[in-house]
Amino acid sequence: MRGAVALPFLWLLALVAAPLLILAVIAASTAADGIPPFALPTGWQGLADNLAVLADDPLYAAALLRALVVAGVTGALCLLLGYPMALAIARAAPARRPVLLLLVLLPFWIGFLLRISAWIGLLRDEGWINGVLLALGLIAAPLPMLYSDGALLVGMVHSYLPFAVLPLFAALTRLDPTLEEAAGALGARPAVAFWTVTLPLSLPGALAGFLLVFIPAAGEFVIPELLGPPEAQLVGRVLWTEFFQNRDWPLAAALALALLVLLVPSILLFQRLEARA
């Protein structure tokens, strides 16, 4: 029994705890020429310096804020689109549910990058949507759709939608169907019964779905890079640039820490919801 704990515990200490600790140490270092490009910290002064750089340059605060806003809007849109889907699957005949769930999940197996590339093919100036609209004579010149906030959100929602649908579906199937029947028997119309019984009871599941989208979306790098406007510097992209192009490892590490600290409340809330479920 001891062994069952020891092996994964050591692995997690080495590959989860240690890396985060090292991240904190590097965030307290100063950038220097060399390989690797930093000098180890002598105290907490380095961390304070790096955080001061992050605080002084509005670029970083804007990138963090923008990432949180984009992640929040993505989460909200995923709920808006995902709730009716989860409800329809939960209310379908039990034999049909696996098929419907599979239809939600299967587009994922084609791979995240291929789905994004499909959106590029649809949205760009000479892309499919513009081609169809031009052929129908609805527009005279191609609409510039790619590299916009709209394209960014479409890509984000398309990528993260199942993360919202699955916890919602789980929450909705756990509900006792007799509750809504009871509301109906007592004279509530279906819409009222849904609004006053099912919806409030499914809110924890909805919140879990929102957080499951929000948390990873906040650090998203690839979709903004491929679909978003070039000036949209989300934190994932800024971190990437600082690290790979400017080779400022301490600043990138400090930025990662800042993102992590901002996400801690959401992460704790999500874990509490999961523990209760």
Binding site: F9, V16, I22, L23, P216, F221, L239, F243, A256, Q271
Partner: peptide, 21 residues
């Protein structure tokens, strides 16, 4: 907490911290 951490850490944070390790 450690076993659950990789589920909730943003990819850029996981990637960067593992590289530093």
């Amino acid at each position: 907490a450690l076993a659950g951490a990789p589920l909730v850490l943003p990819e850029v944070v996981t990637g960067l911290s593992l590289l530093l390790l």
